[in-house]
Amino acid sequence: MNTTTQKKIPRKDFFKYIINISTSAFLILIVYPIVSFLKPPKQREVEVSDVKISNLDDFAIGDSKIVRFGNKPIIVIRKEKEQFIALSAACTHLDCTVQYKKDESIIWCACHNGKYDLTGRNISGPPPRPLDKFVATLKNNELIITKASS
């Protein structure tokens, strides 16, 4: 709109120069947020759908790792070279973070001594239900953890 108004004034002068500059600057100020708004954000979806562990060489067999899935922790256990177990690491009792006890081959919660077997089933202590399961898929030396479809 502004450009058309300027067109009506034939005189070329400094004033018009400034008005052009500030109009374009202003337009950029308007367009920039809109363009960045439309640019797809890094996380594509509302919900986190997967999480990756790429450096598997550091992940020894028999070790466990806690990874972040949104704001929920997931415990990943490397059972065999190509066998991974991924379970929610939030204890179903009071939401403490559980840990893997290699010597007893269980998942253990330090807060109230809750115990789960490696399938996530609550086997002892206060936890009222099993840990939620996640799916760990090995692909090109990268571990992808996704939600289990119920």
């Binding site: 972040r68 949104g70 704001n71 939030a90 939401d95």
Partner: peptide, 17 residues
């Protein structure tokens, strides 16, 4: 704040422990 929320769980764990 998801990362912070993740860390916040540790406070709760510590209180429970």
């Amino acid at each position: 704040v998801e990362e912070i929320k993740f860390r916040e769980r540790d406070i709760n764990s510590s209180i429970l422990e």
